[in-house]
Design a protein around this nucleic acid. Structure first.
Lengths: 188, 188
DNA sequence: ATTTTTGCCTAACGAATGTTAGTTATGACG
DNA sequence: CGTCATAACTAACATTCGTTAGGCAAAAAT
């Protein structure tokens, strides 16, 4: 991918984040790039390519992240801690793309959407496995695995809705807070 | 609001849920209603009215819900339990509208969007107050209040992404599972 | 020096968008 | 019966949409 194409992709991701994919026109993206709409087509095949690349690049990053965590750590609690940390760091390093990944994958065409959902399911499954391992190892309560994983993933997925680059907490601090809360719970 | 208008609103909410507000055309809604696009304008002022009514009706429902919980219950733990239960029940009784409320409020015009955000903030503040009360009453751990509330709200907000009307769990069962997990945490 | 490639341009396409104006069929109410 | 309200219609509007075709200037490669 050429520099210019990457630049266009980045600009598009920012606009998609602000306005949503459907409400962002090719002309909006062109304007941000300081170029006529038609000129974009020297670099991209179409608007959907920008969405597609964004969604699948992020999916790959998240999946690669959790694979590394699974390879490096053994203890389930540590795996979970690092999976959360990795997720939040990827997200904070690609905040625009993460928002698009989270919100706009629905606008992928049917075929690609199906592939995307598969990747997402695989990612979520990794979290369920970690929670199950923690239970088997006697580290975690015998909670409903699906439910516990869902709560963790909800918190992770929701971060894009409130994360602020200028906020006081770093990505790893957010991850640590989240991990601690999920482990400890509210009850005294 | 006439029956027919309500019918159109309901159909629109379903389409907005499936395709998103921006990607749903007035003609799509008209087709669902078995009518020409222009005919809708006997009933509505415009497309945005459908979004506006959806977002603000749901906001009112959620806020009324938590006010009632605050009036009826005193104990912070019970308040939280019932706030979660009420939220999930409202959501499951209005699943299409809830999804739109969650995803598409961004497409409100600037003025209404600002009002909407204020309502949302007020709602979220109620959760923070409950958590803080729980800590003050010695029921809850001395967690970071913002963070704890955020995790709870993340889980609540994310429910629309996986909730299935045909699922095996009722709204109150989901609420109970969620509440228990948040209170207890993972750690044994 | 000549050719090729790159990156943009203008112009235009057909389709879809939200919305309006004006009209008509139907049925309720006096 | 005549009047009015309701709910739909057809036709059209000005825009905007994603995209294509063809060309042109500058830079890179030969």
């Amino acid at each position: 991918m050429t520099n210019r194409k990457l630049e266009i992709l980045t600009l598009a991701q920012h606009l998609f984040k602000e306005r949503g994919y459907s409400a962002t026109s090719v002309r909006d993206i062109a304007k941000a790039a300081g170029v006529e709409a038609a000129s974009l087509y020297s670099h991209i095949n179409g608007k959907e390519e920008l969405l597609d690349r964004t969604c699948f690049t992020m999916a790959e990053r998240f999946i690669l992240g959790i694979k590394e965590v699974n390879d490096i750590y053994f203890d389930a609690a540590l795996k979970l801690k690092m999976a959360v940390d990795t997720h939040v760091n990827i997200l904070s390093n690609n905040i625009d793309a993460s928002v698009v990944f989270q919100r706009d994958w629905r606008h992928l065409n049917e075929e690609r959407r199906a592939e995307f959902i598969e990747l997402r399911n695989a990612y979520e499954e990794e979290f369920r496995v970690i929670v199950q391992n923690g239970i088997d190892e006697g580290l975690f309560n015998e909670v409903d695995v699906k439910f516990a994983a869902l709560t963790i993933l909800s918190s992770l997925n929701w971060i894009v809705e409130w994360y602020n680059t200028e906020g006081s907490l770093s990505a790893s601090e957010i991850a640590e807070n989240l991990y601690n809360f999920i482990l400890t719970g509210l009850k005294k």
